[in-house]
């Protein structure tokens, strides 16, 4: 019986690489979305809500709910469940709308 998803499908991915979450390094596999890499690292939340400041992460997993919005390499509001992880990606926990810098 398989103990991990990778064992189940007998994955032989290319070399793993690092991405960072709020500066902390985690390992991602080539072909994984950012959300999948975060889940594999035990990270379930990477956004705080605009109203209550509550933690959120991936929910629908298919790009429909927009709960997984993350700031990726400085660009806010990217759906982590769709965006492929790339070596060196810097994910930062998105505060609310993620565009505080635009406020006047």
């Amino acid at each position: 019986m398989a103990r991990t998803p990778s064992e189940l499908v007998r994955a032989e991915p290319g070399p793993p690489f690092e991405i960072t979450v709020d500066g902390r390094a985690i390992t991602a596999l080539p072909g994984q979305s950012i959300a999948a890499a975060l889940w594999c690292a035990g990270v379930l939340a990477w956004r705080s809500t605009r109203g209550g400041g509550r933690p959120r992460g991936a929910f629908c997993g298919i790009g429909q709910c927009y709960d997984c919005l993350a700031t990726v390499n400085g660009e806010p509001n990217r759906r982590a469940c769709l965006v492929p992880a790339r070596p060196g990606d810097a994910i930062t926990t998105q505060e609310g709308h993620g565009r505080a810098g635009l406020g006047v």
Binding site: T4, P5, S6, V9, A11, L29, G31, Q32, S33, A35, A36, A37, W39, C40, A58, F59, C60, G61, I62, C65, C81
Partner: peptide
Amino acid sequence: VAAGGAQAMLKSGLA
């Protein structure tokens, strides 16, 4: 998480 979402993340991202 959504049930189908867990399934989707597993099927595509092995997570």
